[in-house]
Design a protein around this nucleic acid. Structure first.
Lengths: 318, 318
DNA sequence: TCAAGATGAGAAAAGCTTTTCTCAAATATT
DNA sequence: AATATTTGAGAAAAGCTTTTCTCATCTTGA
């Protein structure tokens, strides 16, 4: 039996008797034959391997993205190199070079905010690059969450529960995400209360509540927070002041960071950016590009969704 | 110029004039020649690629391990496939098969607790396997943190600060880690107070404080917690009762989960399991095995260290 | 000057698949 | 029965390196 005949049998190509084909397959299965992906790749210029580059050390954003990528690509036999490159350009170059040496079919760049570039030059690479949750090069494909729509979801949810004096406690104004979310807040909630910019820390959540409750006049009945950590702190701070959540004040977070949102008392209703879906899309896109299919460049915005827990009241089953 | 001469020039092998060698190298650098790792691997049976298998979806434990692996191996030109296999044996098999197809040089199995196996059969694989922070097969190399020593560190630190009525609020007794830490606690703190087993949740931290402070008699002046989440909740609960931390009670956590430990008010003094070092060791070991070097099987225990913040008092600069 | 040794560079094989091409045998057609 | 067509299976090349072998040239010593 020649090698070429066996190859054709296993790949269902070439002409040969059905009996021969079956016999080859059976024996291949028996001896546990597995084609050498390297030899295959050498020939086809496909390694069924992609690289995921990120500067998100905690994996807060990258892990869900990664999960989505893997989920989408595992069926295609694609494996993922994960490279965490702090914010070190040298390290970034080392990792990109390693990926190129290994002939990845494509690279996905990911990060922890959508208005910052990774500290590596990904232009003029011999493989396609797509960006997910990080700023992409011009004319590239970039995926990100729809901050405006997500924030709108949160504010509308509060309003739907009858909350009309809504505050917005959020992160630094330097973040595009923060400005987008604030824009949605302003458009929907009017400007009864000024947006409260601060840091992404629990400390800021506490301080914001202190500020809100120290000023005279009507207190908010709803607080839309820029992320779950702030929301958590806000909830804690309210409890310390004996303000009841959700009876007196409804609180919405952002990120659906399980580990924070679910542990808060009461658990947070929060906006989920669907990072996993984002990863799926990014994975499928880089695969398409690797296969030579044309993909229109541009920024693709994916919708957020609201995850209802108990920090707003209302029926969680709605 | 023949291909073989070029190859020899670049690899510093073979016999040839220094001028020729230099000329080849210069031109190679000029045209940006990079040898095809696939062809190389096909020949040498080394792909400079390893697989990291984990069931730790949040990356709580795996990401530090991964960082250590990468740090140790990037200099050797090794890249890492990360595969998160929930707890799904089928998915696990798919990923392991994908790794084998791609001829990884070795596999590192990691997890979220040291007394559970990954839901995949890693025996009789054609590549070396080492285990890090998950239960390994008999006669394999397994790395884990020294829970006893880490716990001792915590208790001794409290005692060194003059705390002698120390409570231990921890996770479920079913965890080996929990039992080891409790054993250290008992040996060092005596059994003035019974170990308080519970869940790994903040809720349990609150409840434990409630229990401790509702019983009559002397209250603890030190609390050693089984992880940072519990510690955080304990600190919060104490504050709610107007017990001052660290003035009245010192609290120590376990894990040094930055995101929790640093955000707690006051920030937690806590035990760090050195997972990154663990990853480094695991990476170097799997590399050694891949290169055919002999490595003695067995369980390697790496020491923990105490990270001093403010939840115990004392001088953080000690 | 001739033989022996040293030196530099190229040819070929190996590593594993896939694909294209070729060829012999078997079947179909006239 | 002889030619044309189809069919099955093997040979060879390509993909990129590395390594071993061979060979021609140059140097050295006698």
């Amino acid at each position: 039996m020649s090698i070429s005949t066996a190859s054709k049998a296993l790949n269902n190509t070439g002409r040969m008797g059905d009996d021969t084909r079956e016999r080859v397959k059976r024996i291949a299965a028996e001896i546990g034959f597995r084609p050498n992906a390297l030899a295959k790749g050498l020939l086809s210029n496909r390694t069924f391997t992609i690289g995921l580059l990120t500067n998100d050390t905690y994996g807060r954003f990258t892990l869900p993205v990664m999960a989505g990528i893997t989920e989408a690509l595992v069926d295609h036999g694609v494996s993922v190199f994960l490279c965490t490159i702090e914010d070190d350009p040298a390290l970034g170059k080392v990792h990109v070079d390693a990926m190129l040496d290994k002939h990845v079919d494509g690279i996905i760049a990911s990060g922890k905010r959508i208005d910052r570039r990774l500290p590596v030059d990904l232009s003029n690479l011999p493989v396609p690059v797509v960006y997910a949750f990080t700023e992409g090069a011009p004319d590239s494909v970039t995926f990100c969450a729809d901050d405006f729509q997500g924030a709108a979801l949160a504010v509308e949810w509060l309003q739907g529960l009858g909350r009309h004096r809504i505050a917005h406690v959020t992160g630094p104004e330097s973040f595009v995400s923060v400005r987008e979310r604030a824009r949605a807040y302003r458009e929907l909630a009017g400007d009864a209360l000024p947006v409260m910019y601060g840091t992404w820390s629990e400390a800021w959540g506490h301080e914001a509540v202190a500020q809100l409750w120290s000023t005279a006049g009507a207190k908010p009945d709803g607080i839309f927070c820029g992320n779950d950590q702030i929301a958590r702190a806000v909830v804690d701070a309210l409890r310390e002041r004996s303000v009841r959540v959700p009876e007196d004040v409804s609180v919405v977070g952002f990120d659906n960071w399980e580990i924070v949102a679910a542990q808060t008392r009461p658990p947070l209703t929060t906006v989920d950016m669907n990072l996993k879906a984002l990863g799926r899309e990014a994975g499928l896109t880089v695969l398409a590009l690797a296969e030579g299919r044309a993909v229109e460049p541009g920024i693709r915005t994916l919708p957020c969704e609201l995850v209802v827990r108990q920090s707003c009241g209302g029926d969680p089953d709605l």
